[in-house]
Simulated assay, not measured.
Amino acid sequence: MTIDWSEQRILIFAPHPDDETLGCGGLMHRAKAAGSQVFIQFLTVGDTADLSPKGFSTANERYAEIKEVADHFRWDDWHIAFPGDEYHLRLDQVPRVDVCNAIERKSPLSIATIEPTIVLAPHRTSYNQDHQVTAEAVHTALRPSNTALRHHPRVVLAYEEAADQWRYEAAAPPNLLVELAEHDLDAKVTGMRLYGTQMHDHPHTRSELTLRSLAALRGMQSGVALAEGYHTLRWLA
Score class of each variant (00 low, 15 high):
S6L: 10
R9D: 02
R9N: 15
L11D: 07
I12S: 10
P17Y: 06
T21M: 12
L27M: 12
L27G: 07
L27P: 03
H29C: 11
R30Q: 13
R30D: 08
K32Y: 13
K32V: 14
A33E: 08
G35F: 10
G35S: 03
G35R: 03
G35L: 14
V38D: 10
I40D: 14
Q41C: 12
L43F: 04
T44A: 12
V45W: 08
T48L: 13
D50Q: 01
L51Y: 06
L51R: 15
S52Q: 05
S52K: 03
P53Q: 06
G55L: 00
G55H: 02
F56S: 10
A59S: 13
A59Q: 11
R62V: 04
A64Y: 06
D71S: 06
H72N: 05
D77A: 15
W78S: 10
W78K: 03
W78G: 06
H79W: 15
H79M: 07
F82W: 11
F82E: 04
G84S: 10
E86G: 14
Y87G: 05
Y87S: 11
V94Y: 03
P95G: 07
P95V: 12
R96T: 15
D98C: 02
D98K: 09
D98N: 14
E104A: 09
E104D: 13
R105D: 01
R105H: 15
K106R: 14
T113G: 04
I114W: 13
I114V: 15
I114R: 07
V119F: 03
V119W: 05
L120F: 07
P122H: 08
P122L: 07
Y127H: 11
H131M: 05
T134P: 04
V138R: 05
H139N: 08
T140N: 06
A141Y: 05
R143L: 09
R143T: 04
N146H: 12
N146D: 15
T147M: 12
A148Q: 10
A148S: 12
H151V: 10
H152C: 07
H152R: 11
P153F: 07
R154F: 01
V155F: 11
L157V: 05
L157E: 01
A158W: 01
E160I: 00
A162K: 01
A163K: 07
D164A: 08
Q165P: 00
R167G: 02
A171H: 04
A172Q: 01
P173R: 00
L176V: 00
L177K: 03
E179I: 01
E179K: 08
E179A: 15
E179G: 06
A181S: 15
E182G: 02
E182A: 15
H183A: 13
L185T: 09
L185A: 03
D186T: 13
D186N: 14
K188D: 12
V189D: 02
V189K: 05
V189I: 15
T190M: 10
G191E: 04
M192G: 12
L194F: 03
Y195N: 06
T197F: 11
H200D: 00
H202Y: 14
H202F: 15
P203D: 10
P203V: 07
T205L: 11
T205C: 05
E208I: 02
R212H: 05
A216P: 02
A216L: 13
L217A: 11
R218H: 08
Q221D: 02
Q221S: 09
S222Y: 01
G223K: 03
L226N: 07
A227W: 04
E228P: 02
G229W: 00
R234A: 09
W235G: 00
W235R: 02
L236F: 01
